[in-house]
């Protein structure tokens, strides 16, 4: 397939996934604000949402206070923030429009409808009212996108690139979420395994739809290291790093049959560390260090994918 087409499909899927993850973060943060917690100021509550998305600096350039209203506007509706849900969905639709031929018409129409429906939220102050509905809508549209592409598209390279975008983005988001939350909730190392706020950890789990999964898998009160295990190493947890890399390695296998391509080696290496890694080792060396390295490797993989397939080289 055309490199340009693959590039648009890959980024389209990444942007939709990005919008979904941002909606998840906003959703649980807003929910946490409803739990009485004197220790957490409004700023302390909302600042992490910016850190997860790597946006704290650009936010501070434009806003002075970490108020709910400012942060929600910035992350959800701000056209000037390239990582806002607005920008992500806009970019997803622009990428889709450029290659509408490469996907089924149902997939395209779904993304087009998403963008048309978005206008109903524009101009609203979501901090006052409607944030939950908005987040639910973003998540539902993202589910719909995955469902319609999965249910209608030929299993050709176009499909593989689309899926690749989804999982690279998802792995990045899960890693960031876990890193920031772990830092925030456990500021001192000796407290690992100490008393934790049930609500805050359950919020982390809910943000990746893992609350019920946790109950099923561990059948125990919520322990931070187990949350980490679930989101890092559990292959059967669909938003975990390991689950993402199981998909990524299989997709790259499909795309490169027989060819040696650097991105496939990198993905295999990361996957091996997740498949054979042990949680106690990861904690010994530091979860933060592990996640930082993971995010770096994942970025490097993204760059290699770009190099191997997507960038248009001179003949």
């Amino acid at each position: 397939m055309l490199s340009r087409t693959a590039n648009h499909l890959y980024w389209m899927a990444r942007y939709i996934e990005r919008a979904e993850n941002m909606a998840r973060i906003l959703d649980v943060t807003a929910n946490m604000a409803l739990v009485p917690n004197a220790a957490l100021s409004e700023a302390a509550l909302w600042q992490p949402a910016l850190e997860i998305s790597g946006n704290a600096e650009s936010f501070q350039e434009r806003f002075s206070d970490f108020t709910a209203s400012n942060v929600i506007h910035f992350l959800a509706m701000d056209p000037e923030n390239p990582s806002s849900i607005y920008s992500a969905l806009y970019s997803a639709r622009e990428n889709a429009r450029a290659v509408r031929v490469a996907m089924t018409s149902e997939t395209w129409e779904n993304i087009n409808a998403l963008w048309l429906e978005f206008s109903q939220f524009e101009g609203k102050d979501l901090a006052l009212d409607g944030l939950r509905e908005f987040c639910d809508w973003v998540k539902a549209r993202s589910h719909l996108f995955r469902g319609v592409s999965f249910g209608t598209m030929l299993r050709d390279d176009a499909f593989q690139f689309l899926r690749l975008g989804t999982f690279i983005e998802r792995a990045d988001n899960t890693a960031r979420l876990l890193d920031v939350k772990y830092h925030l909730l456990l500021p001192k190392e000796e407290e690992v395994g100490g008393g934790v706020d049930y609500y805050e950890w359950s919020a982390v789990l809910r943000s990746v739809s893992a609350f019920q999964a946790y109950q099923k898998v561990f059948n125990d009160t919520i322990q931070p290291w187990r949350v980490a295990e679930l989101l890092v190493l559990r292959k059967d947890m669909p938003r975990s790093l390991h689950a993402c890399f199981t998909e990524i390695t299989a997709i790259l296998e499909n795309l490169t049959t027989g060819r040696h391509v650097e991105c496939r080696r990198i993905a295999g290496e990361i996957n091996a560390s997740l498949q054979y890694g042990r949680m106690d080792h990861i904690f010994q060396n530091g979860l933060h260090e592990f996640l930082t390295e993971f995010i770096e490797c994942n970025n490097q993989l993204g760059a290699e994918i770009q190099n191997s397939f997507l960038n248009i080289h001179a003949a």
Partner: peptide, 8 residues
């Protein structure tokens, strides 16, 4: 030629 993910 067109540039594809599998070469020209």
């Amino acid at each position: 030629y067109m540039r594809t993910t599998e070469g020209p």
